[in-house]
């Protein structure tokens, strides 16, 4: 089933399996699915002890939103590794260094290829989006919100700018590379600093937990937004964004 990976052929809606094999797979999957459903329906669910534990520990965590507390305090190690996953994908996809790589992260396009409607929309939309992103980040402490949501909104604002062909991005500049890694850097730095202050990795000092969490979340927002923007521009196959933003795609990458 995985031997031939068809990519662009139009009639490749089926893999190379025969009808009999497909029916056999379908039957096998249906039986497994039925068995799993039966196992779930017949077995009792565990009592909510963990929810009670979290409710009692929440006041000491520095935030009021339980999901933020779990993400950035109780299970902060998971979030740290997840930011590492984002960095892996960013490193794999970032365009290679070429001769024309400059030091500015984004340069304004001076040609007249800009889309006039999008440009005007962007002029109104981006400041509002940045404010929304900031408020999502701040409200993560007491309501649904936080670094991921804020980063996604910020990334979509930047994507709108890129789509309007207002700017071209240099991913090999220092600021761009710095923005990709700053989330992980700040998180690891705070983790190690916690070892010096409280003796345990990622254990925030009791009174200041809220400020530590906010500091980490700000860096995470920047990194998540930068990574999502990079993913979008590298995957975008429309010619305009390819030429402007995938600098070095034809010459340096895949090297």
């Amino acid at each position: 089933m995985f031997r031939n990976l068809e990519l662009v052929e139009a009639d490749s809606n089926r893999s190379g399996l025969s009808v009999g094999a497909l029916w056999f797979c379908a039957l096998l999957i249906a039986v497994t699915c039925g068995a799993l459903i039966a196992a779930i329906v017949l077995s009792p669910k565990a009592p909510p002890e963990l929810a009670a534990l979290i409710a009692s520990a929440l006041p000491r965590s520095g935030v009021e939103n339980p999901v933020t507390a779990v993400l950035l305090n109780f299970r902060s190690y998971d979030t740290l590794l997840e930011i590492a996953v984002l960095l892996i994908v960013a490193v794999a996809m970032v365009p290679g260094r070429t001769r024309v790589s400059g030091s500015r992260a984004a340069t304004v396009n001076t040609d007249h290829n800009k889309d006039p409607m999008l440009t005007d929309l962007v002029r109104w939309l981006v400041p509002i989006a940045v404010l929304v992103s900031g408020s999502l980040l701040w409200s993560g402490a007491y309501a649904p919100g936080g670094a991921f949501q804020a980063g996604a909104v910020l990334a979509s604002a930047c994507i709108a700018v890129v789509l309007a062909q207002n700017h071209s991005l240099q991913w090999q500049s220092h600021r761009a590379r710095g923005s990709l890694v700053i989330g992980l850097m700040v998180f690891v730095a705070v983790a190690i600093a916690c070892v010096a202050i409280t003796g345990t990795l990622l254990q925030y000092p009791g009174a200041h937990a809220a400020s530590y969490i906010l500091f980490i979340e700000i860096a995470l927002t920047l990194s998540i937004a930068a990574t999502l923007l990079l993913l979008f521009t590298c995957l975008s196959t429309t010619s305009a964004t390819v030429e402007r933003s995938m600098d070095g795609a034809k010459t340096g990458h895949p090297a």
């Binding site: 534990l53 520990a57 305090n73 409280t198 254990q203």
Partner: peptide, 8 residues
């Protein structure tokens, strides 16, 4: 990690 023992 983070000073919270399992299962928390």
């Amino acid at each position: 990690l983070a000073g919270w023992s399992a299962p928390l």
